[in-house]
């Protein structure tokens, strides 16, 4: 696969490592165990568009939020995770 890096253009997926659901960006505040349980263990597993985290390990070390269709591998968006978090604020 090719990951369309927002700063560097398409780069081979071999340069990246994969973490999973981008919901990991939304770490709960406070000490609610149930919220952390959901954050840590519960994931959607959609057949279709999925926002997920990729790390450009053999590259610029940026974490990306990649929107990928898990059924076709089509990638419709890739953003810097830092920008995604910034926009959420």
């Amino acid at each position: 696969m090719l990951i369309p890096h927002p700063l560097l253009g398409p780069r081979d997926a071999q340069e990246f490592t994969y973490l999973g659901d981008a919901a990991l960006l939304n770490r709960p505040e406070g000490g609610d165990e149930a919220a952390f349980h959901a954050y840590t263990h519960l994931r959607d597993n959609p057949a279709g568009p999925h926002r997920e985290l990729w790390y450009h390990e053999q590259g610029d070390r940026s974490w990306l939020v990649v929107t990928r269709d898990t059924a076709t591998h089509e990638i419709v968006a890739a953003e810097l995770a830092m920008d995604v978090k910034g926009a959420a604020r």
């Binding site: 973490l19 960006l25 770490r27 985290l53 790390y55 974490w63 810097l80 995770a81 978090k85």
Partner: peptide, 9 residues
């Protein structure tokens, strides 16, 4: 890096 970029930028 995950903590820096994804949790607490």
């Amino acid at each position: 890096e995950f903590a820096r970029q994804c949790l607490w930028p």
